[in-house]
Simulated assay, not measured.
Amino acid sequence: MNNKERNDFDPKAYNPEFQWSFLAPKYWGTWLVVFLALPFALTPRKFREVIVTKIVKSQMKKGRGAIRRALINLLLCFPDKTEQERFEILQRNLITAGVFLTGFAAVSLRSKHWLSEKTVVTGLEHLELLQKNNQRAILLVPHSWAIDIPAILLASKGLPVSAMANSQKNLVFDWLMHKQRVQYGGRVYDRSGGIKPFIKSVKDGYLGYYLPDQDHGPEQSVFADFFATEKATLPALGKLAKVSRAKIVPVFASYNLETGQYEVDISPPIDDLSGHDESDARVMNQVVETFVEPRPEQYMWILKLLKTQRDGNEPYLRSDLYP
């Protein structure tokens, strides 16, 4: 389906618009960052890498905030690795993130042809087969730094994409991020509105974009193995597939620091969903493990992945794990 032949507007979708209040003094700092970031995104990758590396190494020495949280996540997930190995993974992770993010504005500044040339896609035939057979699909996309790339790329090729996201506190950044996500069409639903509009969009033929690895608390989750630990995991994957009558297709996005290419890996649809909460939660975590273990530098280890614990003892508050 060509995105020019459909109307992506949905009154239930999140559709922020420009407001004149965005020009108020409280947002001048935001606009300054935007206007500096746009030309910087077009500078050579190696130049950005040099600057990012210096900043990351300086911040790593402090070991506070998000860096401390990421180190705790890596400790619990990879206890067999040495402290130095985990430190090096995180340093590489943050450099990858910094180089990717400082260049991400180019996705909007350049053309869809540039994006296609910049991206290496593996496994696209799995989606093409589903499309050919008129089967619905929900993409299961773990939180890598390049997580937005597959959605924008597929939309640029005329495939309708529907996603859920949390709105940002900074209204200018929120508007700009939304504009970038739907620059080639598609729909984004605010998580606060529930999952029903998202399911309806999948039934309408949109490719669902589902993020499997955030911690939504004990009330909504079950505990399932996650690397060497366990994680509070949403158990609804099998039920989601059933109610939307869709195949679940794992997708992972990477940023190759050596080549500067975006890489999108699309796996065959998952066949072993049972509809049972615990087993389906484990299947979902296995998808994350399969993608992340060979390239841990791509994953958002700074997230509060393991905040919810069986004993209620949040690891990020424990000084015995990391001072």
Rank of each mutant, 00 (worst) to 15 (best):
E230F: 10
L234K: 00
S116P: 00
K242M: 14
A163S: 15
P16Y: 01
I147C: 09
I195H: 09
V202C: 05
V107A: 04
E219Q: 14
S244T: 03
E314V: 13
H113V: 14
K54I: 08
E117T: 03
Y322D: 00
V52R: 10
S274V: 08
K196A: 13
L42P: 09
K132Q: 14
N134V: 05
H178W: 15
R282W: 02
E88R: 09
G208K: 07
I195A: 13
E85T: 05
N134H: 14
E88P: 07
V172F: 11
A165I: 10
A253K: 01
K112D: 06
L76E: 07
T233I: 11
L237E: 00
F47R: 06
P218R: 12
M60G: 03
R45W: 08
G185W: 11
I55T: 07
L153R: 09
I199F: 01
P315E: 00
F9A: 03
K61T: 08
K169L: 11
F173E: 07
L140H: 02
G217V: 14
R136K: 15
P11V: 02
G103V: 04
L273T: 07
I199H: 00
L317F: 12
P296I: 02
S116V: 10
L273R: 09
L42M: 15
A105S: 08
S319W: 00
R295E: 06
T290S: 14
K57D: 15
Y262I: 12
T229R: 04
P294Q: 10
C77L: 06
Y322A: 08
L32V: 14
D265A: 11
V222L: 01
A151R: 11
A41G: 11
D8F: 15
Y209S: 12
F100G: 02
N134Y: 09
G208R: 07
K4G: 08
I89P: 02
E314C: 14
R48H: 01
F291H: 11
P39D: 02
N2A: 01
A155I: 11
L140P: 03
A24L: 15
S144F: 13
P212C: 11
A151S: 13
D190A: 11
E128A: 07
A13Y: 00
G65F: 13
G186R: 09
S167F: 09
F78N: 10
K239I: 10
E117P: 03
K169W: 02
V50F: 14
N73M: 09
T290M: 11
P25E: 04
H276V: 08
K307Q: 15
T229G: 04
V34F: 15
D265G: 00
A241P: 09
E117M: 08
I248E: 01
P269N: 03
L303K: 15
G217R: 12
P160I: 06
Y27E: 03
I152E: 01
D277I: 00
I195M: 14
V188S: 08
K46A: 14
I72N: 01
V107W: 01
V243T: 15
A37E: 05
G65M: 12
